[in-house]
Amino acid sequence: MDATTIGSLLVGVGAVAAAVVAYLGKRGETALTGYSSLTGTLQKERDRLDGKVTELHTQLADAARLRADDQAEIARLREENARLRDLTIQLGGQP
């Protein structure tokens, strides 16, 4: 083989190597873009769910407060019922 043939082969091998490197680099760039996009989507979804959890905790606290108010009202009405029952008996009636 003469120097021209060897030079041509080296140029060909270099071109193939450059094409392979370019192809792999583009794949890596595409993968990185996809990963960044996925990360952004997951962060938005996490923020949306965090907001929903906060809203549900607020609703739960409101419901617990209303339940406590209702329980206090029931206790008050039971005491009033017992007082009226005793008064009815004292006045000679049937409870």
Rank of each mutant, 00 (worst) to 15 (best):
S36A: 13
L10V: 08
D47C: 03
D47E: 10
I74A: 10
D2N: 14
A19R: 00
L32R: 09
T58D: 11
G7L: 11
G14Y: 01
A18T: 11
A3F: 08
G7M: 10
R83Y: 07
L42N: 06
T41F: 03
V53K: 08
Q71C: 02
L56E: 15
A72G: 09
R27C: 09
Q43E: 15
M1Y: 08
I74W: 08
D86E: 14
D62E: 15
L24C: 01
S36H: 06
L38D: 08
R78G: 06
E45Y: 06
T4A: 09
D69M: 12
R65M: 11
R65F: 09
S8M: 13
G40M: 09
S8V: 12
I89R: 09
L24Q: 04
T5N: 10
L66E: 15
E73M: 03
A75M: 10
E79H: 08
M1W: 07
A3V: 07
R85G: 01
K52A: 09
L84K: 08
A17T: 03
A17M: 04
A82V: 12
L66R: 11
G34N: 07
S8F: 07
E73F: 03
E73N: 08
L24S: 00
S8D: 15
L32K: 07
V13N: 04
V13I: 05
L9H: 07
A31P: 01
G7R: 14
V13G: 06
T88Q: 07
T54K: 07
L10Y: 05
R76E: 14
L10W: 02
G28I: 11
V20G: 00
A75Q: 09
Q90Y: 01
D2L: 04
A68K: 12
L9R: 14
D50N: 01
D86P: 05
R65Y: 10
Y23A: 13
G93M: 05
T39S: 10
Q71R: 06
D47V: 07
G92C: 12
L49H: 05
T4Y: 05
L66M: 14
G92E: 13
I89D: 05
G93W: 02
V20C: 02
V21G: 01
A75C: 06
L60E: 15
R67V: 14
R67T: 15
K44T: 10
L60H: 10
K52N: 11
A17Q: 03
R46C: 08
V20Q: 02
G7V: 09
A17H: 02
V53R: 11
V16Y: 06
R46Y: 15
A17I: 09
L38R: 05
L91K: 07
T54P: 00
A3I: 11
D2M: 02
T58P: 02
T41V: 04
G34H: 02
Q43A: 15
L42K: 04
H57M: 09
I89C: 00
Q94C: 00
L32V: 13
P95A: 04
T88W: 03
H57Q: 10
A17E: 05
V20L: 02
V11E: 07
H57N: 15
E73A: 14
E79Y: 02
P95D: 03
G34W: 00
